[in-house]
Design a protein around this nucleic acid. Structure first.
Lengths: 148, 148
DNA sequence: GTTCCTGCAAAGGTTTTGCACCATA
DNA sequence: TATGGTGCAAAACCTTTGCAGGAAC
């Protein structure tokens, strides 16, 4: 079973266990999100569904993404301006952050122990209670760096 | 001279040196941004100007903030959803990041050497060329933690 | 059969743009 | 006076909401 369809099954299970029905639109969005993988946004999901001939109302796409996010199946990431971007969260996924390519807009996940350690220590020293953090690196991705 | 009016003078100087005119609206926005300090957004600037009786078109506020940002006098920060937020950048300001309080929405700047070192090392190891980074900590600020 | 989900259309908030007029340098 | 700034209104963009009808359990 691919990692992506595994996410879809996981998501549908969590929905069912949460007492949510798997209606036409919701199911279609889950499958499309799984098919696209990585970082998705409402417009791309909508377009992807239309390309496949599945007519789903735009509002339903937003509602589904919002619900999946509430249930922890997606995580909203702040990578800059523009539409809201969500990332798939699977059962065994690692904590990580993102590199954003300024040229092509692609996002690449990475993880770094030293970075996490620095943030953890920092959190202890601050007068705030820190519950989560987000790190975004901006630059040029390897692919854009090579080609034009 | 206060730090804030120093920023306003600095900004007006950079504008002049860049060949930009100091029209009514532009000057008013610079002064209002300086008066509010910290993190500002278009709507607050607009409201602040209206409260002072300075009638400035909304479009001019957006245009001024955009220009100040281009000139490096403001920095756009990604602290979540909602309107675009800009932070004043003065001539002697240190590189720093932000804590965002989930309860009151306030933002607190902080700097940490170890964090910067970890990011610098990380950047060298990655196949990307990293030109900038952003770290946001989410939690509850000291003030909200104490009171209700 | 009841409840929830869905699609449509309308409205919401934020930001940009076109254009005629006016102020700055 | 030439250039660029400004305000207004309209549009663009992303997202949410109200509501009537239909599907899931």
């Amino acid at each position: 079973m691919s990692k992506r369809s595994a996410w879809a099954e996981h998501a549908l299970r969590v929905l069912r266990e949460g007492g949510y029905r798997a209606g036409e639109a919701r199911r279609a969005v889950v499958e499309q999100v799984a098919a696209q993988g990585g970082c998705v946004d409402a417009e791309r999901i909508d377009a992807g569904l239309r390309k496949r001939g599945r007519r789903v109302g735009t509002a339903s796409v937003y509602r589904a993404l919002g619900l999946l996010s509430e249930l922890g199946l997606l995580r909203r990431v702040s990578l800059g301006e523009g539409p809201a971007i969500y990332e798939l969260v699977g059962p065994g996924d690692h904590h990580h952050h993102h590199l954003v390519c300024e040229r092509c807009g692609s996002t690449t996940p990475f993880e770094d122990e030293r970075l996490e350690a620095a943030i953890a220590r920092l959190g202890e020293r601050l007068p705030h209670s820190v519950t989560s953090h987000e790190v975004t690196l901006h630059g040029t991705c390897a692919r854009c760096e090579r080609g034009t």
